[in-house]
Simulated assay, not measured.
Amino acid sequence: MPVMLREAWARFTLIVLLALGLGVQNSAARALAVPDLTTTVLTLTITGIAADSHLTGGAGNKAGRRVLSACAMLLGAVAGAAAVLHGHPTLPLLLAVAILAAASAAATALARTDAPWTRPLTEK
């Protein structure tokens, strides 16, 4: 086997092993259900898709939202990479600030309503 191919296989093997390790870590964090136990957002979302799927005996009721979240993160990563590669290096920062401002304005407007989801939960 040529040296370049051997190095490529070693890299891919390492990537797979690290991905499996992160998946196991996130599955353990989900199983422990410790509040505020921080894990990476994207891998936890993908782990949730797999852990709650019908194939693993889960309800599968949140898969659509989780897939949409993962796709939104992918789209954001692609947009940020394109902005860095084809624009000015500060363009991703400006885009992030604009998106944050829009999300903050939307959250503020939505929080002013009197919808049931805006009220705190009460003890029964």
Rank of each mutant, 00 (worst) to 15 (best):
C71A: 12
L110F: 10
L42R: 06
L91N: 02
E123Y: 15
A115V: 11
A81V: 06
A29S: 10
V67P: 06
T43K: 05
T43N: 10
R6K: 13
R112K: 14
L22K: 04
P120V: 03
M73V: 04
A103W: 07
P120Q: 02
T118R: 09
L110T: 08
I46G: 00
T47V: 05
L110P: 00
A77N: 12
L121H: 05
I49H: 00
L91W: 05
L37Y: 09
T39V: 08
L14G: 12
T108I: 09
L18Q: 13
T122V: 14
M1V: 12
T118E: 03
L14T: 09
T118G: 01
D36L: 07
L5Q: 14
L20A: 08
R112Y: 05
R30E: 03
A70Y: 01
L95M: 14
L74A: 08
P89V: 03
R112C: 12
P92A: 08
V3N: 13
S53E: 03
T13E: 14
I46E: 00
T56Y: 09
M73N: 05
V78G: 02
V84L: 15
A28G: 05
V84I: 11
H54G: 12
L32M: 12
D36V: 04
M73C: 08
P92Q: 06
A70H: 02
D52P: 04
P35C: 04
M73P: 01
G64I: 04
R66H: 07
L75M: 08
V24R: 04
L17A: 13
A115D: 14
A81P: 02
F12W: 15
T108M: 07
A70R: 05
P2H: 09
T113G: 13
A81N: 09
A98D: 07
T45H: 10
A105R: 07
L110S: 11
G87D: 05
R66I: 05
P89I: 05
L22T: 01
T38F: 04
A51M: 09
A105H: 03
T108D: 04
R119V: 09
A50P: 03
L110N: 12
A77P: 00
A79E: 00
L37M: 09
A29K: 10
H88R: 10
L5E: 15
T38C: 04
L85G: 02
Q25I: 03
V41N: 11
L94G: 15
P92V: 01
L20G: 02
N61C: 05
M73L: 14
G23S: 07
G76P: 01
T108L: 08
Q25F: 13
D114N: 15
C71K: 07
A70F: 03
V97H: 05
L14I: 08
L121W: 08
L20N: 11
A102H: 05
A77F: 15
G60S: 04
G58C: 00
A77V: 10
P92I: 02
L93F: 11
A72W: 13
R11S: 09
R6G: 13
P116D: 15
A96Y: 10
V41A: 12
G60V: 01
L37C: 06
M1G: 14
G60F: 00
G58W: 00
I46P: 00
P89E: 06
R11F: 11
V41Y: 11
V24H: 06
L95G: 08
V24L: 10
R112I: 10
A102E: 08
A107V: 03
R119Y: 04
C71M: 10
P116F: 11
T38M: 07
V16T: 11
L85K: 12
N61A: 10
A107K: 06
